[in-house]
Every structure is written in C-alpha cells, then in structure tokens.
C-alpha cells in the first residue's frame, strides 16, 4: 500500500471510530457535540499512561486504561448532562468539550499549549483491525435488546418507559460506551501520529463527527460508517480529480459542494442516507425470510 493511501485509510478509520462514539447516544436521540472532549481525554490519558514521564505502562494497557478513565468521567457527567434535552444537550456537551480543552491546555505535565509527544507508535496494522472491531461491536450493540430499547427511546421515550425500559440507564450506557469508543479513537490518533495538541481536537472536529453521524443516518448501525466513509473519501477523491485534471475551481470549490450537499440532503432526505426502510430493501433476499400470508385487512386497505 502506498504511503498516501495508507494515510488516508488511517484518517478514515479514526473518523469511523469517532462517529460510532457519537452514534450510540444519537441512536437514542441524544445529540453529543462534545466529541472533541472525549477524544482529548482518550488521547492524553493514553499518552500519559504510556509516557516515560508518566506511568510507563505498555501501550495496550494504556489504551485500555484511557478508555476506562474516559468512561468513568463520561459516566459521572452523563447524569447531569442527560437531564438536558434537545438544544440544551447540544450546548452542554459543547461546553464540556471546551472545559476539557481549557484544562488540558493548562496542565504542564501534558505539555500545555505546546502539545505532548507520544511514545509508543501504532501503525495501520493495529488501527484497521481495531476499527473493524469497533464496527462489529456497534452492530452487535445495536442488535441487542438494549439497542432495541435505545431505538425505541429515539421514537417515543414515554411509551418505552411504559413497556419497562429504564430510559435513564439506557441513555447513560449509550453515552458512556460512546465516550469510551471516542477515547479509543483519540488514543489511536495519539499513538499513530506520536504527537498531540489540544487545539487539534477543536469544536470543528466535534461538528464534523456529528455531521457524519446525522448525514449517514441514526436509524441503523450502517449510518456512521457510511457517513464517515462518504465524507472522508469524497472530498479527497474530488481533490485528486481536480489535481489530475487541472481544475482549480473544483479544488477550491469542493468544500462548498460538500456544504451544499449537506443542505440538500437535509431537504430531501432528513433521516440521513441510510434508513431502516432502505436497509430492508437492500437486504432483500439475504435477510428477509419467507413472505408470510398477508392478512386480508392489509391486502384490502
């Protein structure tokens, strides 16, 4: 694999992991604009656990400990944050990410504003399998009864409660597990590039990840994968085309096209690219079992 393709693959993998971290709470209707905060926690925690100036632990253990550390923080803050709804939750998670960035940039042990070098290096042979693992895990998670409960909460929280779903617990689990995935993504980022700066994980990153998820669609576990893949591959492919064909307007205009695409997608397909119905249609022969006898009412009306 060429160096260029490899670097693009890494970017895609990280975007996918982040996207699944935002997707899990979004599947239950909770919008988290704080991705950057959890990614920062994961990246810095793992770097510190691993660093010779820190705990000097092996890299795999550092990554796991970072996930547990981030998970604990997410668990604790999920209780107050999940009290908020709609635009308040968007703002609260956003505020959380700003607080994290503000703290990290002031801790001397973490390199403060200058950033922090990361010791152990993880390359594509680790990152790709980890990404596949995250994808498989997310598909499994959404297929469980807990996943069903989350999707029910997305549609109608009150009815889900009346059928015995513990809405609070389900939301807290989704939020916490999502944060742990983002932590994993952040750790992998740090160990791959071997240098982290709090400024890299800014609000723009949070916005883009939320966009991947909402564009891809929150109804099925395919959504984040499609969203992340589409929005990392297409702009890059357009750049490639523009360069080889010498189209300067395309090279400069591709992000505007990207923005216009977002606007139009929300007009024509507000549920995101992948919906439940589309999944069924595509899955057709593979997943759908024998057509059962349609009852008369359904046939008549």
């Amino acid at each position: 694999m060429s160096g260029y393709l490899e670097s693009q693959l890494i970017i895609l993998c990280l975007a996918t992991i982040y996207a699944y971290g935002i997707f899990l709470p979004a599947a239950s209707g909770q919008l988290n604009l704080g991705a950057a905060g959890f990614i920062t926690l994961g990246a810095y925690a793992s770097a510190w656990f691993n660093a010779s100036t820190g705990a000097e632990l092996p890299v795999w253990l550092s990554v796991i400990l970072a996930m547990m550390f981030t998970g604990t923080i997410a668990f604790v803050i999920s209780f107050p944050i999940l009290r908020t709804r709609g635009v308040y939750m968007v703002l609260a998670t956003f505020a959380f990410a700003e607080v994290v960035a503000g703290i990290v940039i002031n801790v001397e042990e973490l390199g403060a504003a200058a950033g922090m070098p990361v010791d152990a290096h993880l390359d594509v042979t680790v990152i790709v399998p980890m990404t596949i693992l995250v994808i498989l895990f997310s598909f499994y998670f959404m297929s469980t009864r807990l996943g069903l409960a989350l999707r029910s909460i997305h549609d109608d929280e009150n009815v889900a409660t009346l059928f015995g779903v513990n809405v609070r617990t389900a939301k807290v689990v989704a939020f916490t597990v999502g944060a742990m995935l983002m932590s994993l993504g952040g750790s992998l980022y740090g160990h791959h590039y071997n240098y982290i700066e709090a400024q890299t994980f800014n609000v723009l990153l949070s916005i883009y990840i939320l966009l991947y998820v909402l564009m891809g669609g929150t109804q099925t576990a395919w959504g984040p994968l499609i969203g992340a893949a589409f929005f990392t591959i297409v702009p890059e492919a357009l750049r490639e085309i523009a360069e080889s064909a010498g189209l300067t307007w395309l090279a400069e205009g591709r992000f505007m096209m990207f923005g216009a695409f977002i606007v139009l997608l929300m007009v024509f397909r507000p549920e995101g690219v992948m919906t439940r119905t589309l999944q069924d249609r595509l899955g057709g022969g593979l997943f759908r079992r024998k057509k059962q006898v349609l009852d008369e009412t359904a046939a008549n009306s």
């Binding site: 979004a26 239950s28 209707g29 909770q30 919008l31 709609g86 635009v87 968007v90 909460i153 997305h154 549609d155 929280e157 916005i207 966009l211 909402l214 564009m215 929150t218 923005g259 216009a260 695409f261 977002i262 606007v263 929300m266 007009v267 507000p270």
Partner: peptide, 14 residues
C-alpha cells in the same frame, strides 16, 4: 422523532 430538531442545525452547519 427525537433528533428532528437537529435538522435545521445540520443544514445551518452546511
């Protein structure tokens, strides 16, 4: 559904 209020937010980001 619960994420409906995010639609104008997303297009405004666009």
């Amino acid at each position: 559904d619960a994420t409906e209020h995010a639609l104008p937010l997303v297009s405004s980001l666009g």
